[in-house]
Design a protein around this nucleic acid. Structure first.
Length: 432
RNA sequence: GGCUCCAUCGUCUAGUGGCCUAGGACAUCAGAUUCUCAUUCUGAUAACCCCGGUUCAAAUCCGGGUGGAGUCACCA
């Protein structure tokens, strides 16, 4: 049975790329009735953000279910990583290192791959993997669909267990826990590809079975550069708050880096699971195209029933007649947060901008013939007065909504009610 | 810089040697429908990074450039 996992670390919000990885891992497992698990990689207590784990659960829950969770800090406290590291030390594949931690961001890349501590027989410190010389390390990547190899001489001795002797780094924890959770297929970001040779060795020395491993692409900025987390355009939570529907986000994101043979575009999660195929993975990095996301979102909004939309829109715009307003704006919404700007004239009398299209003659006619106008009985009369129908309604539109682009104006007047509608027309009439 | 990965319309992609004068979608532009906007429908513009090689035949295979991405922390 296929078992996959999504393994976020609680150091911030759920990233759009993380959601995509989760969706791929979910589909890979569920396509063959397998299991999809979660693992919280919280082995760096310093970087952990309080409440982030719960937030990840809450957000991910809107997209998919999972079959189990492992929390790495619990595992660390139980000593599983320490035991694994000790085993490696005892078998001679790891050693204690007492060097000061460094920080690559401040110090630049390092050039020494062999740690001097490897020959010093320390009995305390962090545990580091002893990389063998002149060995070819190879794995098959099921996303890239070919083998990738390294000469072990290019692979650095790598910390596996921190000097607290309890918490592991990613490289040890991932091996121990993938083994523990019986993960058959690992799907993770491409930033991990260069540490695969280390994982290969850890698995071998610990006697673990090597899983299928695949690294999908990373999502780039709309401009094609790096997707910066600072810009805030990569947080799933933020997209949700902006009024993007989960089904739209999911559909959008799975198609960044994956495509079916027939190039179908619209997928629910279940449909994606059914259609999922490992051969559909793309190898080159996609750019985030928000226009396409908007298209998906508008599409899924139009799929919603009016009563569903009442629920969805209420947090953005509340109005006693919302159920009547929705049919008027449904085709005009791109994202839920657009709604207030489409509907503000329902709540308050809008300022009337000076506009040459607004004709007092039109307004006077509308006031005097309101009831028949509302019933749509006056089109012929309007034409016979020599007015263009569009011009006539534009005058009303501006008088009532204060805007040149609005929902159909007679329907709008119906919702506003006769008194309010006539008041607004009169107000505009007197101003002109 | 070392190591690794990648390279088809502006963007997401189909394409696994002949079906490709390269197909679809988003975006853009034009037209139709419409009381505006929007929706919907129709049409148009638009791409195989460069140079060699293999082959009767290359977007597709190979080599070299160039370009982009990742990584080189007791972070994940």
């Amino acid at each position: 049975m296929i078992r996959t996992r999504f393994a976020p670390s609680p150091t911030g919000y759920l990233h759009i790329g993380g959601l995509r990885t989760a969706a791929y891992a979910y589909a890979l497992a569920k396509h063959s009735s397998g299991e999809f698990l979660l693992r919280i990689e919280d082995t760096d207590q310093k970087r952990e953000i309080k409440g982030a784990t719960q937030k990840i659960f809450d957000v991910l829950e809107k997209f998919m279910n999972w079959d189990g969770v492992v929390i790495q800090s619990d595992r660390a406290k139980a000593g599983v990583y320490r035991d694994a590291a000790l085993k490696l030390v005892n078998s001679g594949h790891a050693f204690y290192c007492q060097c000061q931690p460094r920080n690559a961001k401040e110090q630049g890349f390092s050039t020494t791959l062999r740690d001097p501590c490897r020959d010093q027989h320390n009995t305390t410190g962090a545990v580091k993997l002893r990389i063998p010389d002149n060995e070819t390390l190879t794995y098959n990547d099921f996303v890239l669909k070919h083998e990738v190899s390294w000469n072990s001489n290019d692979v650095p001795d790598t910390i596996l267990l921190k000097s607290d002797r309890l918490f592991a780094t990613y490289h040890l924890a991932v091996a121990v826990d993938d083994n523990f959770q019986k993960i058959t297929h690992v799907l993770r970001g491409p930033e991990w590809i260069s540490s695969v040779p280390v994982h290969l060795l850890v698995h071998r020395y610990l006697g673990y079975k090597w899983p299928e491993v695949g690294h999908p692409t990373s999502i780039l900025d709309p401009a094609g550069g790096k997707l910066s987390k600072r810009k805030g355009n990569s947080s799933v939570e933020q997209f949700l708050a902006d009024g993007y529907l989960p089904e739209a986000l999911l559909n959008f994101v799975i198609l960044l880096g994956w495509a079916p043979k027939d190039n179908r575009e619209l997928f629910t999660l279940d449909e994606f699971v059914k259609a999922f195929d490992i051969n559909g993975f793309q190898k080159s990095n996609p750019a985030l195209n928000l226009q396409k996301l908007d298209w998906f979102n508008a599409h899924y909004i139009r799929q919603k029933s009016d009563s569903e939309l009442v629920q969805l829109i209420t947090p953005y715009f509340n109005h006693p007649k919302l159920d009547e307003i929705i049919p008027l704006i449904k085709d005009r919404i791109t994202k839920l947060s657009d709604v207030p700007s489409l509907t503000s004239f329902f709540t308050s009398n809008p300022p009337i901008p000076p506009d040459p299209s607004l004709s007092p003659d039109h307004l006077r006619f509308a006031i005097n013939n309101y009831d028949r106008l509302i019933k749509g009985e006056l089109i012929d009369n309007i034409k016979s007065k020599g007015w263009k129908v569009g011009d006539f309604f534009m005058s009303l539109r501006i008088a009532i909504c204060g805007s040149r682009s609005t929902p159909p104006i007679t329907e709008t007047m119906l919702i506003l009610g006769k008194d309010e509608s006539i008041n607004r027309i009169k107000t505009a009439f007197h101003e002109y």
